[in-house]
């Protein structure tokens, strides 16, 4: 079965961890993830600038490792990312900002990508809140 997974919460929220454990279980169960979509505060999961204390779980790093290991399509909502200062090289240049937070495998794109993923998947599962 094809799963689209959307995450609305930042890496320090329990639902980010829950979404990642769910995503791991989806693949372990022989299913497919057609797209991960990071929306609203969820865009912070794609930020390369997060420094997590050594005795805490580094969810942003775990998400990156997961996406890279399984070569997943991981889309970050561009509008949500811009307003939170989570920019890739292209957007940083476009708006004259010094800080770049998003690098591959993450990709900034529009909300249409969530719509398309939901249409193409058998299930859309959203995680957010607490």
């Amino acid at each position: 079965m094809k799963f689209a997974i959307a995450l609305f919460a930042p890496p320090h929220a329990p639902s980010s961890r829950r979404a990642l454990r769910f995503a791991e279980a989806v693949l372990a169960g022989g299913h497919e993830i057609n797209r991960l979509f990071f929306y609203q505060d969820g865009v912070h999961n794609a930020s390369g600038g997060i420094v997590t204390p050594q005795d805490e779980t580094d969810l942003a790093a775990q998400w990156r490792a997961f996406v890279e290991r399984h070569e997943l399509d991981a889309v970050v909502c561009i509008a949500a990312a811009l307003r939170r200062g989570v920019l890739d090289t292209q957007e940083a240049q476009r708006y004259g900002r010094a800080a770049v937070a998003v690098t591959p495998p993450w990709e900034l794109s529009g909300l249409g990508q969530l719509h398309e993923a939901a249409q193409q998947a058998d299930r859309l599962v959203c995680f957010g809140g607490v």
Partner: peptide, 8 residues
Amino acid sequence: YPDFVELC
């Protein structure tokens, strides 16, 4: 979590 996926 595997049960969670199965439920979905």
